[in-house]
Design a protein around this nucleic acid. Structure first.
Lengths: 180, 180
DNA sequence: GTCTATATTTCGATAGAC
DNA sequence: GTCTATCGAAATATAGAC
């Protein structure tokens, strides 16, 4: 396993929007919710807690979001955004082995930079499952199609050292491990 | 990775108690709860749902369990039971390489046979975390001590092909993968 | 945009009859 | 052991003033 630089890699548009100007209430709600949903779980986190954490009242949340699930959905869309940005980096270039290695390296670093979004999803599988029964699926189709397109590109040089049956295991574990 | 037989391996006492006589209401409650807690998550599963699924009323549950958490705890204890049974199989024999391989093989098969218990825990990490803050820890100490004893046995032949730093990754992934 | 106040619902839990 | 009936708490969500 190669040693990679763990320094910040600001390539993908910064999803947490930590810019110069003061954060909007909407973003502050989302960030507080992210923290609490990770720490206590979606179900055990009440809107009152989220509101208190950023110094507003419960009712104020309802100005920015239609429901509690809506907040979760907004956080989920950050993951979609990440996926699309990652896909965009592949572009239309000839997929050489070196290019792929470089891109994968970058994307893994970006995943680390945004790891709390991934952690949120790993820790609230049930909540997201419920969320997906109420459909927002056009976006999902697009994402999946995009990844299929990139991954099934016949021009991609295959090294074949790792059986694909084991690859998913290794990747998933690596992700899970980095999140703790 | 060696091919292992996936046929039933009834060695550890069958935790699901699927015997000859009709299942007790207590067991039926636990089985229904197991299904629902896996499918919908602990928090989103109401006692009413559990009761309806087995054709009794909510109040009947309270005859068998003191609280909703109590039901979760009972399911958690199935995992403890599994752990103790697994430990017991190691016994006091000389831990040869062949013996270890054989035992590990058996235990993995038994994990598969009881995989819903493991799946329950993977899918409700937040709920179990809350559960453990209210202490039932003597049993945990015993379990951990037991595993430490088995794993730190200096007579165990070490092959050393897999760095222990990677071992946990591989194991965790393998478990996660088999559960889906 | 944010507040106070309140409506509505759901759930865990209990009491007591049978 | 299981039921009906109900309580009390907590949560989501809404109404309307500022």
């Amino acid at each position: 396993m190669a040693q990679r630089a763990l320094t910040a890699v600001p390539d993908i548009a910064d999803l947490s929007e930590e810019g110069i100007e003061p954060m909007s209430t909407r973003e502050r709600i989302l960030d507080a919710a992210l923290d609490l949903f990770i720490e206590k779980g979606f179900d055990k986190t009440s809107l009152r807690e989220i509101a208190e954490q950023i110094g507003v009242t419960k009712a104020a949340l309802y100005y920015h979001f239609a429901s509690k699930e809506d907040i979760l959905m907004a956080l989920h869309l950050r993951l979609h955004e990440f996926g699309f940005d990652a896909l965009a980096q592949f572009g239309d270039q000839e997929p050489t082995s070196a290019l792929w290695a470089d891109l994968m390296d970058k994307i893994v670093d970006q995943m680390l930079a945004h790891r709390r979004i991934f952690l949120l999803h790993e820790r609230n599988q049930a909540a997201f499952e419920a969320l997906h029964k109420e459909e927002h699926d056009e976006s999902h189709e697009d994402l999946q199609a995009g990844f299929r397109r990139v991954l099934s590109d016949t021009r991609v040089p295959v090294r074949g050292e790792v059986p694909s049956s084991e690859l998913s295991e290794i990747l998933r574990d690596a992700v899970g491990d980095l999140l703790r």
